[in-house]
């Protein structure tokens, strides 16, 4: 399987730039495995990303057309490419800061337009590349380099945000739930319309180190403990659900398309 995936990677790029314990490498592999499983020709794919660690998942690693854009604008660039050439299967892979903070306006408007983009948001709950500043997705109370006394603000629920804006297919998984995540990526690749997958991807370097989760195994364990599939969450009390992250799929899923 590992050798079979090599065809999707640029041979001239020797390694990824991700830190030890980063979840982005897992996500990178799962996106490619999903494409492989569906037998999609990479020549049909266009990968668009913004700025930040997650934007380096497709660019320069993927052996396909990639467009590495300015901070926050990946969805807007992707919109232009998709509208002009609807035959392209356009996937946006970027981070939580890029897609939901500086680029939040484009996210909600693309969902409203229901344009056929497959948006994957690698959510590490912090600005990783710039040194661990608070993000719109940082949990309440978390310590970051710009919230030394704890984050005073509530985070976005990105799936609810995109659904409220009109997104018909949204999903949330952690990289510690690889099979469920891969299923959702495959569904999004076959879905006609705007789809959004929030992927919880740990940042041991910037988030973990400031929040008592400094080692890669610790932050992975924290995700495994706290991410609960929505079916399991249904039987739990509000107290039990406090600080839990509910994962799964929401919204209408078309079948037999793509």
């Amino acid at each position: 399987m590992v050798r079979a995936m090599e065809q999707y990677l640029r041979s001239e790029i020797p390694s990824t730039p991700f830190c030890p314990g980063c979840g982005h490498g897992i996500l990178l592999g799962l996106v490619l495995r999903s494409i492989h499983a569906l037998g999609i020709d990479m020549r049909e794919m266009l990968f668009v990303s913004g700025i930040g660690c997650a934007s380096w998942i497709p660019s320069p690693h993927f052996n396909a057309d990639t467009l590495h854009t300015t901070h926050g604008r990946a969805i807007a660039f992707a919109t232009g490419a998709k509208l002009y050439n609807p035959k392209l299967r356009v996937m946006v892979i970027s981070g939580d800061g890029d897609l939901s903070s500086i680029g939040g306006n484009h996210l909600i408007h693309a969902a409203r337009r229901d344009i056929d983009l497959k948006v994957i948001c690698a959510n590490n709950m912090i600005y990783g590349m710039t040194g661990g500043q608070v993000a719109a997705t940082t949990p309440l109370g978390s310590t970051t380099s710009t919230t030394p006394l704890g984050n005073p603000d509530r985070p976005f629920d990105l799936c609810k945000l995109v659904q409220a804006a009109g997104g018909r297919f949204v999903a949330r998984h952690s990289v510690t739930q690889p099979l469920a995540l891969m299923e959702s990526i495959k569904k999004s690749l076959s879905f006609e319309g705007f789809s959004f997958i929030e992927v919880l991807s740990p940042c041991a370097t910037q988030y973990g180190s400031k929040n008592l989760l400094e080692s890669a195994p610790k932050i992975m364990e924290w995700l495994m403990e706290n991410c609960i599939p929505r079916e399991e969450a249904e039987g739990l009390s509000p107290e039990e659900l406090e600080e839990k992250i509910i994962t799964g799929e929401w919204g209408y899923v078309e079948t037999g398309t793509g």
Binding site: G72, A76, T79, G80, N85, H106
Partner: peptide, 26 residues
């Protein structure tokens, strides 16, 4: 042709650049 009214000017020029790489005179 393709016309799109975007949500702001940042996305307008971004969409133009994306379309240009998709082959359009934009």
């Amino acid at each position: 042709g393709v016309f799109v009214q975007m949500e702001d000017e940042l996305s307008s020029i971004a969409a133009v650049i994306g379309a240009s790489w998709a082959g359009a005179k934009a």
